[in-house]
Design a binder for these strands. Structure first.
Lengths: 119, 119
DNA sequence: TCATTATACATACAATGTTGGACATATGGA
DNA sequence: TCCATATGTCCAACATTGTATGTATAATGA
């Protein structure tokens, strides 16, 4: 009975990054993915970590610490994955985003995909 | 040199509503449109007005007060329209939303609308 | 003039966004 | 050995947005 909360803009991007990265989702890669999505706006690494923390508090993602890798500076990484709750929340957010895009495209007539007006 | 601000989730919906309503965009109609976009989540009317104020402060929209209409309770309405700056900001936001949707759809494979894979 | 309707606006608080840097741990080379 | 450097995590403070709830204004019709 507390399912009413909706995701913020940045939260959506972070969740999307986690989902799309599969089993390689940790701070640095998530940050990179978010920057691609959010282009041309930059995102601070710290912002990503803060958001990951909050999403984990809300049980939308879960994490586990890995073993360190044998690279220069290869510190232990914390890997994330979506929970079912997170997946549901992201689906809702995506549906809204989609509705918005559709309305905008029809208002702007960016119609590469629209029915061709023959004549 | 202060063009870095990005739109929040609700701001995007409000701007979209204003754009799509053309010359009939005022508090009540905007609220209705936003609720459609944001379904199934409800939005308070007050939230819409607050957001409109803030968007106007940021010069993303402009408003003018109309004459009252001769209906029961027909108080003067404040009509809104997007500024050029607002249109640009909304386009940026839409591009990000679109990228997100694309990534999600390809992660989930929800392809009903996708280019038909002929055989 | 008073109840009712439609609309706008105000205030306060909660949630999210953003910055900047501190901390931790590994490697490689002087 | 020990320090410079690379990879990563996390915290604290502040700024911006989101949301709920209440108040104000102006018109109509009884």
């Amino acid at each position: 009975m507390e399912d009413t909360s909706s995701l913020g803009q940045f939260e959506q991007l972070v969740l999307t990054a986690v989902l799309s990265l599969g089993d390689n989702a940790y701070g640095v890669t998530i940050h990179q993915k978010v920057e691609v999505l959010n282009h041309p706006k930059a995102a601070a690494l710290g912002a990503v970590y803060v958001t990951l923390d909050r999403l984990e508090d809300k049980k939308l993602i879960a994490s586990k610490l890995s073993d360190p890798t044998p690279e220069r500076g290869g510190r232990a990484k914390r890997f994330y994955r979506l929970s079912e709750k997170g997946e549901r929340a992201l689906k809702d957010a995506a549906a809204t985003a989609r509705r918005m895009c559709d309305v905008l495209e029809s208002s702007w007539g960016e119609g590469a995909w629209k029915p061709v007006r023959t004549r």
